[in-house]
């Protein structure tokens, strides 16, 4: 994962709350088995609307999304983060995020910063007054600067540290493999194992037919 300290890029005001993951990337795009190439899927339904913010020339190359509260609700699909990243977004700011989305962002190097709603409103006004305005997101000091205004954002210490250092979670965990093994030795016998598989008797399933 790339290290992240500061980023400067065009801010995009998305004046919507409850932007769920089905809006960020509709399910039909989830059939791919690769981890990249989702930029066309981002906000797919809304991008058909010429007035949608990302269809406006000044915002097209945006990399800092400023959204309404409860961004990323709904499904756990990490594709939502991949789509934002593939499009070019490095940062999403909102006053509240869905937990799973925020977790996924942290794993993928997308900064999900919590900004007070009144500061979101301020950023929206600035970004609408000057389309294409660049904002600077400083992860070290946890601030967002747009024009003359600087507002704070929150991100938990651990995620911030990992993003700044560009650390891989699995590698970090495997440093404690001995402790995992020790824990496994204490697990009770009743806890189920999927193997060897135990099932009810095998029964043939009759296929429902499209002709019927």
């Amino acid at each position: 994962m790339d290290k992240f300290t500061t980023h400067t890029g065009i801010g995009v005001p998305l004046r919507r709350g409850n932007v769920d993951t089905d809006q960020i990337i509709p399910a039909v795009y989830l059939k791919r088995v690769t981890r990249t190439g989702f930029e066309d899927a981002l906000f797919a339904a809304w991008r058909g609307d010429p007035s949608f913010i990302l269809n406006q020339d000044a915002y097209k190359a945006g990399s800092v999304l400023v959204a309404g509260p409860d961004f990323g609700t709904g499904s756990s699909r990490e594709h939502a983060v991949w789509a934002l990243k593939d499009y070019g977004f490095k940062v999403v700011l909102a006053s509240r995020f869905a937990d799973i989305f925020r977790g996924n962002s942290g794993k993928q190097g997308l900064v999900a910063g919590l900004v007070e709603q009144e500061d979101v409103e301020l950023l929206w006004k600035l970004l609408e007054a000057t389309p294409g305005l660049e904002v600077t997101v400083d992860l070290v000091n946890r601030t967002v600067t747009a024009g003359e205004a600087t507002v704070p954002f929150q991100i938990d210490d651990y995620t911030r540290w990992r993003l700044i250092e560009g650390l891989d979670d699995i590698g970090l965990t495997l440093q404690h493999e001995a402790e995992i093994t020790a824990f496994e030795a204490t697990r009770e016998a009743w806890r189920p194992k999927t193997l060897p598989a135990r099932t009810l008797p095998k029964i043939d399933i009759e296929a429902a037919r499209s002709s019927s």
């Binding site: 594709h79 799973i100 794993k107 965990t173 495997l174």
Partner: peptide, 16 residues
């Protein structure tokens, strides 16, 4: 709880 794909990989690799 539901997890993202990075976490799926993490659980597959470490069971934690």
């Amino acid at each position: 709880f539901g997890i993202g794909t990075s976490e799926v990989e993490h659980v597959l690799a470490t069971q934690t």
